[in-house]
Nucleic acid binder design. Structure first.
Lengths: 203, 203
DNA sequence: CAAGTATGTGTACATCTGTACACAAAAACT
DNA sequence: AGTTTTTGTGTACAGATGTACACATACTTG
């Protein structure tokens, strides 16, 4: 290894221009910077998103971030909007692999556990986006669109009211789970979804 | 009125020491500063909580905040913990006025609408606390305690699983509602709770 | 090839921030 | 009374931050 440790961050550029040190014209640099911002949000929180921190995470000099994004708010807005879009895209993809007539509670449980486990970073970013939007009108649309996508997804497999209800349960479980230290038990979550879907008929 | 406009902020001290201008020994100053911090969080977001902003909001000089709180994290921690406690206290109080056999969905709807309307500030602070806790272990207990209180409240009126499920619905509706521009419709929320409580028996 | 433009980079600077600290004044104590 | 301790305040300072901008290099167009 001759490179220091920014190796992993150089790959995209290398592959396009052949590890040429001072390469110009790096397409996708904007997006790479935005993604670096996302990872800073995920790992250190939204308040740590500074030009310098993002530049370091992206492996680019400070001037590069200020060149591609006039203001820090622009950078944040693009990063969070992109995060929300990725999130929704993944949700839709998940939904496609779903037949009608499947065990909905079990699938929802899988989804929750995935968002709390392997995809935890994504979840954290989504939640940071949510509260950031509370005081930044520019980000509000990204948040509400995520909610809408969630509702549409669930209403497609049940009905209007049940879909909204399941979306709320899903959202609530995510929120409660993301701060809990040991991941919640699988059975616990599944039981909750089952109760939400089947109801209290036996009472 | 001889005082400028810090009048409302002086009341506590006045009542104890008789409107003595340069009064020392102002008990409750610590708490007042913490509450000022809460209001800064509610109105401008957690990232705007600085010694200077809090001092201005509390009507005290800069040195006062650094005197009462060694570090900014201490101030934030106390403020948010207090906010969470207030929140839980209000929840319990609400629960006491509840008979068994009441219309649970209607009451839950009232609660959601109250948190989204008159008590919106409180809700915003609670949510900022939640994400702040994601990257500050010191705050995590306050968040989880809020969740626990919520669950206990709901399980007391139903059963274990249904309580958890309702807590999740409640939490999810709050999250989705706090970013939505026009407040959600009362009927919509009530319908959701009704479906959650009664289930889909007729399907 | 020459000129012009888009892209990239290093540095500088005004501003804001946390915090330390010297001082002042009241209260508690002897 | 005097002394010590607690409480309060103004100021100073080092560091971080957003952003501007002069310069450098590559690409594009003629």
């Amino acid at each position: 290894m001759t490179t220091t440790d920014s190796e992993s961050l150089r790959t995209a550029a290398d592959e396009r221009r052949g590890r040429n040190g001072g390469s110009r014209k790096d397409p996708g640099r904007r997006e790479r910077i935005a993604r670096a911002a996302i990872s800073v949000v995920a790992e250190r929180g939204i308040e740590k998103v500074t030009h310098r921190a993002v530049a370091a995470a992206a492996g680019v000099p400070l001037g590069s971030t200020t060149y591609h994004f006039a203001t820090l708010d622009d950078l944040l807005a693009m990063a969070l909007r992109q995060a929300a879009q990725d999130n929704v895209a993944e949700l839709r993809e998940w939904a496609e692999g779903m037949d009608s007539g499947v065990d909905l509670p079990a699938l929802l449980t899988d989804l929750v556990l995935r968002y709390l486990g392997p995809e935890r970073k994504r979840t954290v970013v989504e939640h940071e986006l949510y509260v950031a939007a509370l005081h930044r009108p520019a980000l509000r649309s990204a948040s509400t669109e995520w909610d809408a996508a969630l509702r549409d997804l669930f209403t497609a497999y049940t009905d209007e009211v049940s879909g909204k209800m399941l979306a709320a349960v899903f959202c609530g479980l995510l929120w409660q789970g993301v701060v809990r230290e040991p991941l919640p038990d699988r059975d616990e979550i599944e039981m909750i979804f089952r109760r939400a879907v089947d109801g209290n008929c036996s009472d």
